[in-house]
């Protein structure tokens, strides 16, 4: 569907995205994930046609679109601010692209009404001013406006980043529903790992303009390819591999160079068969409602963190207890 072949983005001497090869499949929800300044928005803008690559080619449906202007690439865009034109009502916003194409008023009305129905906007809402719309309605208008020209690809540039946590959760669900309904190839930019994990079919993780890993959310979470991905996705315990014997008494990996990780949810406070027991003392407790994060120290002064569901009675600071880890839950990079 989309193929980037050796593309690079430069601003003067600064390389925003190093040489990149990437394939995005038809119909998938593909997320570009990374911290601020990692080059993900530049990459999206390059795919949409707002910036030109300094080298390499962009193919959409096997057509080289590297030098094709933005409106001819068949890409619909939803911006971070939604960019709903404030001087127009909802109808005019959705109809904007159709008017540019000089379609007849009847065709325009028909298409706008059909699209409004698909994104759950009522007739009455169509004639509201942009300023009267809620966050969710704005998102639907922006998506409807982008999709009415029947693009092959929908690009979303951090559309939830300016919203409060509760609304963000609601709109995330709505966005997923709409994407499934339209079945359109979607490229989504975010710095929020949780958003990426819940929405995406596949995720590409970037750091400092370099692609670190591409994979399904589960692959990214369970088998991170680099220390950066391991740290960036979810909370994790990180140790020098050679120290694992001192901390957990694990022999297998001891003596090896490198970094070893174990996720917080894999550090248990209840014993299960075949697990390694580590005596520890509680030094800190973070209560998060549904779950609790504990920080422990071993007898040798090493720190271990865990996250457990808040089901039974909580431990207290200075409690001495045994924690349990499974050797197969460690991964080494």
């Amino acid at each position: 569907m989309i193929d980037l072949k050796g593309t690079e983005i430069k601003y003067g001497d600064f390389v925003a995205m190093h040489e990149l090869d990437l394939h995005i499949r038809e119909g998938e929800f593909f997320t570009l994930l990374g911290p601020s300044g990692c080059g993900k928005t530049s990459l999206l803008r390059m795919i949409t046609g707002f910036i030109e690559p300094s080298q390499g080619q962009i193919y959409i449906k096997e057509r080289d679109v590297t030098d094709v202007s933005v409106e001819k690439r068949g890409v619909g865009i939803v911006f971070q601010s939604y960019a709903i034109f404030p001087t127009m009502n909802v109808f005019e916003n959705i109809a904007f692209g159709l008017r540019v194409q000089r379609l007849s008023p009847n065709e325009i009305e028909e298409m706008v009404l059909e699209m409004a129905k698909m994104v759950d906007l009522s007739r009455e809402q169509l004639y509201r001013k942009a300023s009267e719309l809620s966050g969710g309605q704005q998102q639907r208008v922006a998506i409807a406006r982008a999709l009415i020209l029947k693009p092959d690809i929908l690009c979303l540039d951090e559309p939830l980043s300016n919203l409060d946590a509760k609304l963000r959760g609601q709109l995330r669900l709505e966005l997923k529903k709409l994407q499934k309904r339209f079945g359109i190839t979607t490229i989504y930019v975010t710095h929020d790992q949780e958003e990426a994990l819940t929405l995406s079919d596949r995720i590409a993780v970037f750091d400092h303009g370099v692609l670190e890993q591409v994979g399904s959310p589960e692959e990214i979470f369970r088998r991170p390819a680099t220390p950066f991905v391991a740290n960036f996705i979810g909370d994790i315990n990180q140790y020098a591999t050679e120290s694992l014997h001192d901390v957990f008494g694990i022999e297998a990996a001891s003596g090896e160079l490198g970094v070893s990780f174990i996720r917080l949810n894999n550090v248990k406070t209840e014993e299960r068969s075949g697990m390694i027991k580590v005596p520890v003392t509680v030094v800190d407790i973070d209560f998060h409602g549904f779950f609790v994060k504990y920080t422990f120290v071993t007898g040798g002064g090493h720190e271990i963190r865990s996250a457990t569901l808040h089901e039974s009675e909580m431990h207290a600071v200075n409690d001495r207890l045994d924690i349990f880890v499974n050797e197969k839950d460690f991964f080494h990079l």
């Binding site: 949409t48 707002f50 933005v70 409106e71 890409v75 619909g76 865009i77 911006f79 971070q80 601010s81 960019a83 034109f85 904007f96 692209g97 540019v100 194409q101 406006r145 982008a146 020209l149």
Partner: peptide, 18 residues
């Protein structure tokens, strides 16, 4: 003016004077 208004218009096929 939010620069995204003009980018959005461009993405929808509008040009300079329009």
């Amino acid at each position: 003016i939010d620069s995204e208004y003009e980018l959005a218009a461009r993405a929808l096929g509008a040009r300079g004077f329009y």
